[in-house]
Design a protein around this nucleic acid. Structure first.
Lengths: 204, 204
DNA sequence: TGGACAACTGGACCAGCGGTCCAGTACGTT
DNA sequence: AACGTACTGGACCGCTGGTCCAGTTGTCCA
């Protein structure tokens, strides 16, 4: 993206202004209350510019999400344990969940905004994995770690469930009230329960 | 609602027609693709009628949800075990989760529609418990059962997490592919893990 | 049976949305 | 300095959820 033929200086400036404005609006208001026009106005650019840069509401939210998640992605791939490679899967999983809650807590509306965004455009049968690289990465990582420790579980599905909480309205509400640590604790607790559960048959 | 001064015959007929039409549309299309105008047309009434009866999109979805959940509510309150009172909390919980998945699977878009509905109108700081009686009831029931077996857990929050999965886009997708039993199994598995997990401190 | 009143009805209407379009602007290159 | 092109912005479009109210229809009472 920022390579080969770099974007023009004004384009880069506007792109950053738009992302920043979106971030600020997202911190202050509910994602659904934020219109693309507002974003444009807040960023001091025209609506056309926003769409030219990001294609759609979903594109914008996704770009923001990707940026916010970048540090985490790197920490997981090449960083030090327990987040990065090297620690046992169980520890990495717990650390990763904590890290995700942290990202979400600092960008409350983001996941919900992403959800709402493609709710609006609704490409019917798309695999969410493909549609949302960030979600896909998070989900895949959790599923992998879970599988490593508990190959008997339906890790794919459990990973979805673990992540689903972060998109839930009720839980977002808690986050807004500063209960991030409580959520992290509950998620850790749940994950630990899953890791230590007696072996069982998924067909039952 | 259907008491004291009953609604006029035509009103009742239209109300049922609207709910039925909504249900059918919800079975066929994504909730976000269904406009109130479509609902009205499908029900063979004017748009004004729909809004007069249900107040808003959320009102409509909520009414449908309440109707759909009625049988479950009764089964839980006064029905026979394991769903109704009498069975051990752990058993009731697993049975209840199964039952919920069943309701959701047979009305795929409904929970999502509800979520999307108040996403649109967005009464900022409302307690979801108050705002969505059905969700509130489900959440409360799960939290109660969970507390009965595991008073050391943050049951309120765990209940939210358990329910969150049913609103998640990725999981709705599974449901559409007929994987309801797989979801039920995963949820049971998760709940069992929670119930059997070693006692732990929520502050850790 | 009929008359009167309220409840219900439906479609024109409104503001605001996400997204498109394209004439004009300003950057980077030579 | 001058040129081509990528970027810009705001008018514009189709459509949405929701409002409004003149006209209709069911119900109740005499």
């Amino acid at each position: 993206m920022t390579q080969d033929r770099p974007e023009r200086a004004d384009a880069a400036r506007n792109r950053r202004a738009i992302l920043l404005a979106t971030e600020e609006l997202l911190a202050r208001y509910r994602p659904e209350q934020i219109s693309m026009e507002q974003v444009a106005a807040a960023a001091g650019v025209g609506k056309g510019t926003v769409f030219h840069r990001f294609g759609s509401r979903m594109g914008l939210m996704h770009a923001l999400m990707a940026e916010r998640a970048l540090a985490l992605t790197e920490a997981v791939s090449v960083g030090p344990p327990p987040l990065g490679p090297g620690a046992p899967a169980a520890e990495r999983l717990l650390a990763f969940l904590d890290a995700i809650v942290d990202v979400i807590a600092r960008n409350k509306g983001l996941l919900a905004a992403l959800g709402h965004a493609d709710t609006t455009t609704a490409k019917s049968d798309e695999d969410p994995r493909t549609a949302h690289p960030v979600y896909g990465f998070w989900h895949g990582h959790i599923a992998d770690l879970l599988t490593a420790e508990r190959p008997d579980l339906d890790a794919e599905l459990q990973a979805h469930i673990l992540l689903a909480g972060l998109q839930s309205r009720s839980i977002l509400l808690l986050l807004e009230q500063g209960e991030a640590e409580r959520l992290a604790a509950a998620l850790r607790s749940l994950a630990r329960a899953l890791l230590h559960a007696p072996t069982e048959d998924t067909t039952g």
